[in-house]
Simulated scan of single mutants.
Amino acid sequence: MLRVAIIVGSTRPGRNAEAVARWVHECSRKRTDAEFELVDLLDFSLPLLDEPVPPSQGQYTHAHTKAWSAKIQSFDAYVFVTPEYNHSTSGALKNALDYLYKEWNNKVAGFVGYGSAGGTRAVEQLRLIMAELQVATVRAQVALSLRTDFENYKTFTPAAHHEKTLDSLLDQVIAWGGALKTLRPG
């Protein structure tokens, strides 16, 4: 059974990412073709990248990096829930991605973005980062608008059609996740 992490991509106080990630998790739990787990960046307390050796070497010195590495390594695929801040993803998510390298390789990612333009510009930035980390990305993505999918820009009230898009995203993530699993050592 594939293991899929739903990563809460913001640590900002008052963030919308947690509500969106919980919705993704709730929708995903209706499926029986993979195991899904919420992974919150807040739980790892990652400071700005503080490892002295490049992540590609896998020589981690800090407990927080080792814990993050073990968690990320345990998954076959990822769904990133990202806000859009200044036409990009959050600094916290970028920092968390930069901590690791081999743990991401030969896996797959899907994206659920939110913002004034549906988080699409943040997702485009993440696609570039994923390519460098050797993570395949799926085409389907969920784009949530702060204007129409949140009451007063705060309370998450997604339009019904987003669940169908999320199902397509998860279908693609699971299909690609299974295919890419064959590329990784047993």
Score class of each variant (00 low, 15 high):
Leu169Gln: 07
Ala159Lys: 15
Thr157Leu: 13
Val53Ser: 04
Thr155Ser: 15
Tyr153Val: 05
Arg29His: 05
Ala77Asn: 03
Lys94Val: 13
Leu144Tyr: 01
Phe80Leu: 05
Gly58Lys: 12
Val24Gln: 06
Val79Ala: 14
Val39His: 06
His25Leu: 15
Ser28Pro: 01
Ser74Gln: 08
Val39Asn: 02
Glu35Lys: 08
Asp167Phe: 15
Lys181Thr: 08
Ser90Met: 14
Asn152Asp: 10
Gly115Thr: 09
Thr11Cys: 10
Gln59Pro: 00
Glu51Cys: 12
Gln141Val: 00
Thr155Asp: 12
Glu18Cys: 02
Thr32Trp: 05
Pro55Trp: 02
Gly14Met: 11
Val142Met: 14
Phe150Ser: 09
Gly119Asn: 02
Pro158Gln: 06
Pro52His: 09
Glu26Asn: 08
Leu133Glu: 06
Trp176Ala: 14
Ser69Glu: 09
Val39Ala: 11
Phe111Ser: 09
Leu42Glu: 11
Ser116Pro: 01
Arg184Thr: 03
Arg139Asn: 06
Val108Phe: 09
Ala96Ile: 08
Ala21Asn: 02
Lys181Ser: 12
Ala96Cys: 02
Glu84Lys: 08
Pro54Met: 09
Ala92Arg: 03
Asp33Ser: 11
Leu183Ser: 05
Phe75Gly: 09
His62Ser: 13
Arg15Ala: 11
Pro54Gln: 07
Gln134Met: 11
